[in-house]
């Protein structure tokens, strides 16, 4: 059904071992996120918001509990299935952009498509469309070090979009940007949720950034605060 949650998190626990100590990062979190929502995960450092994002995106495994994304229990996938699942279903945006420095903007955006069966011409069309969407068609052949921080983050968003995933996860996407670039990036993410049917989950410390979302979830000590 259209309004079924795209993400269903139930009793999620994540415990890290640090020396002889067990550190509880998430302590029984349950949350539903509907399609096309733009959810901001907020909270102080160590509250577990990034851990929650990583578990939803399938780049970490929970200690207990379930994460269903589009009905798939992410924790049950093996390493290789998880890699394929991430490639097809999740787009990632990082605080530090995480572009490959030796590749151009175009080549960076094309990377996730190299894992698909698409022909070269189809890949080219999709990359150009994604870069057009973030307003960077004219800079596609520049390497990351030839782009501003805001432009690099827009390339990263294009890379996150290019496989047309249902879910976009963003970890502090404006953390390294000036106010103007941060606003541009937030408008793009907002438009993705509003007009392109994407579900966006974003970790942020910045209330201004969170204000672009449809909902904010506050975490404290590994639990969702009331």
């Amino acid at each position: 059904m259209a309004n079924d949650p795209i993400v269903q998190v139930r009793d999620l626990r994540k415990v890290f071992r640090q020396g002889d100590l067990d550190v509880i990062a998430l302590n029984g979190v349950s949350v539903d996120i509907a399609p096309c929502e733009f959810v901001a995960l907020m909270g102080p450092s160590g509250s577990g918001k990034s851990t929650l994002l990583h578990l939803i995106a399938g780049i970490d495994r929970p200690t207990s509990g379930t994460v269903l994304v589009q009905g798939i229990n992410v924790a049950e996938l093996n390493e290789s299935q998880l890699a394929d699942w991430r490639n097809q279903n999740v787009g990632f945006v990082f605080q530090t952009f995480n572009l490959i420095p030796v590749l151009t903007g175009f080549e960076n955006v094309e990377l996730p498509l190299l894992l698909t069966q698409l022909k070269r011409s189809e890949r080219r069309r999709q990359v150009e469309t994604a870069l057009e969407l973030v307003g960077l068609s004219d800079r596609m052949h520049h390497r990351p070090d030839q782009l501003s921080g805001g432009q690099q983050q827009r390339v990263a968003i294009a890379r996150a979009l290019v496989t047309d995933p249902a879910l976009i996860v963003a970890d502090e996407p404006t953390g390294n940007l000036d106010a103007k670039s941060a606003a541009d990036v937030m408008l793009i993410l907002q438009a993705l949720a509003r007009s392109s049917g994407k579900t966006v989950i974003m970790v942020t410390h910045d209330p201004k950034a969170a204000a672009y979302g449809t909902r904010s979830l506050h975490l404290e000590k590994g639990e969702i605060a009331a």
Partner: peptide
Amino acid sequence: TREIGTLRVLGFSR
């Protein structure tokens, strides 16, 4: 190292 992490996140296998 970060590049490798990024490639893995994007779906590239070990």
